[in-house]
């Protein structure tokens, strides 16, 4: 019997080691798997490459990882925010490397990795600083920039419900990067609010098929704590 559920968040992240590349779902705090990240911090690993839309908000999640000095490099679209003080300090001190990627290119490059594509040509960023030095091509009268896939050793994502085969459904805008990060990582670990019996999820509405998910752990923080 295949059972991808694990009993604790600590067990869920037990294989992540120093130097790993880790995709972390979430747009701002919505969909941020805080409990998995806390477990990762408690594990003591560092020298991580983190892929997330932002570079941490406030004190939790990605911000806490950066505060604890565990992140060597971050690949993201929008690092600077009113509450990104831990990233700002680390960046100004030269302690963290930043690869800035337009948000749609970030999504497309992650999706490309999950779909097994060797590269993509994207119109986004053509003629800007973020495309400097990159190969371009004129296709059907439109300019495109060559961008490579972003894959990772692990993805930490948050979903609303999951079953023992790893099928997932999400909640509202907490979905954001979850489904594509699940595709692009070698090992995807989903923190879900509820583990449900196999068959409880309507097959017509499953968003992430279990083939993209390797671990499911139940962790149900109060909704209010998400803010």
């Amino acid at each position: 019997m295949i059972d991808k559920t694990v009993p604790t968040v600590e067990a869920a992240v037990a294989e992540i080691s120093d130097g790993a590349s880790v995709m972390i779902g979430g747009f701002g705090t919505a969909g941020m798997p805080d409990e998995l990240i806390d477990a990762l911090i408690a594990r003591g690993v560092g020298d991580l490459t983190i892929i997330n839309n932002n570079a941490g908000n406030g004190e939790h999640g990605v911000a806490a990882l950066i505060r604890e000095g565990r992140v060597r490099k971050i690949i993201c679209s929008f690092p600077r925010q009113s509450d990104s003080h831990h990233f700002d300090a680390a960046f100004r001190a030269g302690k963290i490397e930043l690869e800035l990627v337009p948000q749609g290119n970030l999504a497309a490059r992650i999706h490309a990795a999950g779909a097994g594509l060797g590269a993509i040509f994207t119109p986004t960023g053509f003629g800007t600083q973020l495309a400097e030095g990159k190969e371009t091509r004129l296709i059907d009268g439109r300019h495109y920039v060559l961008e490579y896939p972003i894959q990772a050793d692990f993805a930490l994502i948050k979903a609303e419900q999951g079953d023992r085969w790893g099928n997932l459904v999400y909640r509202k805008t907490a979905r954001n990067f979850g489904p594509i990060m699940a595709m692009a990582a070698r090992t995807t670990i989903a923190q879900v609010r509820h583990i449900v019996p196999l068959g409880a999820l309507d097959p017509e509405v499953i968003v992430t098929p279990g083939i993209f998910v390797q671990r499911v752990v139940e962790s149900a923080p109060a909704l209010a704590a998400v803010a």
Partner: peptide
């Protein structure tokens, strides 16, 4: 100089 860049979806929105 010294400004931390952040792009978000601006470039995708602009051309999309």
């Amino acid at each position: 100089p010294g400004a931390i860049p952040a792009v978000g979806g601006a470039m995708d929105l602009a051309i999309g």
